[in-house]
Structures are given as C-alpha cells and as structure tokens.
Amino acid sequence: MVEFAKGHGTLNDFVLLVDPDDERGLSDAQVRFLCDRRAGIGGDGVLRAVRARHIDGWDGDPDAWFMDYRNADGSVAEMCGNGARVFLLYLREEGLIPADADVVDFGTRAGLRRGSFLPDGRVRLWMGRPTVSSTTDTTVTVGGSSWPAWSVDVGNPHAVTFLTDADDLAALDLATMPDWAPAERFPGGTNLEFVEVLADDAVRMRVFERGVGETLSCGTGTVAVAAAMATVQGRTEASYEVQVPGGSVRVDLTDGQAWLTGPAVVVARGELSERDE
C-alpha cells in the first residue's frame, strides 16, 4: 500500500506522495492512473517529495526537498506555482520540515524556490525572474478567432493573450488545445492564458495547461499574466489580483522578480493499492 494525500491551490488539484529515497519512481501510466478522476484519485498532476540528491542534474543542497512534478498526462513539468504552495503545506503537515519553519527553500526543475507561510494561512512563493518577449511574437487561435500573444518564461513556457472588449472570456471553447503560430516557437508545448483586464491592478484569466487541458487555476500562469500586464503598462514594479475560475491570487513584481501569494489546502489522506504498470 502507498500512502497519499490530495490537495489543491485555488482548485488546481494534485495527488501528493512522499518518496525521500527515490524508491518509487512513477511511470507515465502510473501518473495517468493517479490523476484519472474515475479510475484513480483524480488531479491535474502529481507532486512527489524526494530528496534533491536523487534528481539528475541537481547541483544544489543534496538534502533539500525536491518537488518532482508531473502533469496529468505523465509528462514532466519544470514548475507549478499552485502545486508548490500545496507541496510546502504537505511537507509541514507530514513533519518533513519543522512545524515552526516560516521560510522554506525547495528544489524544482526551474531551480531553487523559496516559500513563506503567512499568518493568515496563505503561502507566498518567490517565483524567480519571469522573462517577457519584447513583442507579441506569437499568434494564438481559438475557433475562428486569433490574437497576438506575449511569450513569457516563468521557468516553464507561457503564451499570454489579452482579449479585446469585444471578446467574451467565458465563451471561449477550451475543450481542445488552442493553436499557436509559429509552431516552432514552443517546440515542447506551452501553457496558454486568456486574459480579461478588469482594472489597472486586476485581471481575470482562463488557462489551457500543457499536458493537462483547461484547469481551474495555474500558478505560473498567473505570474506570466502579471509579468505581461506589467510589460504592457510599462511598469517595473506592480501588484495584481489575478482571478481564476478556482479563486484568486496575488502577484507582486519588483526588481524583475515575482512573488505569488495564495491559498493551499490538503483535503484528504489515504492508502493506494500498488500498481505495476
């Protein structure tokens, strides 16, 4: 039997596992099973807590906890902002970090990240330095409509589209993956955000996540949207409320760096029967 937990950040949900010595590497099929909402537990991805020494290419603290994140289709992802908040809460609740630790460093495939537990129960993450393309270098198409998009790197790739006043965010058909051009702009795929501007410091977005489909939230996507918004506004320091179908988060930008603040919840724990495939 394998112990697991289930958690979410603004309804972006995950299966959580502890495997400190890398004894239970997951196949793509096992990840798909875990994330299957009928045959498995259900989730947008799997978060596995493993000591960083077991991760190929890691050259930082070997004893750091590493967030081994997999998308629902089994593919590996560099970073997950909502998942990282849930991951840190899980580490604390499992006793894997001190209960009184307010600040925690942890590893991801996008590099070292730092999270802080806030008194109100939210978690604040340092998200590194997002990079925004100098122009709208991508065209994104949904149905028969196309828009220019900003390419943003938050440790993983994003294409951010700002809708016009004539567009209806809620009416977009994101049941299938939107197209983008040029195709070679994102050879490994990308996350696609569609944004309605509500005010100078507030936006609403929907997202089609690489390897998952439309999700109710995407933490790195909210940071990508905030970084693109700041670029459009010509601002180097800014704070934004980013509303997603699963709730809202806050993104702060200063000196080229980004911080993401939002809720994290662990909702259940259980035991899973072993599977070989």
Rank of each mutant, 00 (worst) to 15 (best):
H54V: 07
R53E: 15
D63Y: 04
W58Q: 11
D105V: 05
V140P: 01
D105L: 05
R85V: 09
A99W: 04
W58F: 13
D105W: 00
R53M: 09
D56G: 13
L96F: 12
M127I: 05
T108F: 00
N71W: 09
F66N: 04
R122W: 06
R114M: 02
L112S: 07
R122E: 15
R70F: 15
V104M: 05
A101Q: 15
R48M: 05
V140Q: 01
R70W: 09
Y69T: 10
R70S: 12
V104K: 01
M79E: 10
A64Y: 03
G128T: 04
I97S: 07
P119R: 07
L89I: 10
G83V: 02
G121R: 07
T131V: 15
L96C: 13
R114G: 00
G83Q: 03
A84H: 10
S75K: 07
S75V: 09
W58N: 12
S75N: 11
F87H: 03
F66G: 05
H54R: 06
M67Q: 14
E94K: 06
F87G: 02
R53Y: 08
N71P: 11
S133D: 08
S134W: 01
P130F: 05
L112D: 04
A101N: 12
V50K: 00
A72N: 14
G128P: 03
P98W: 05
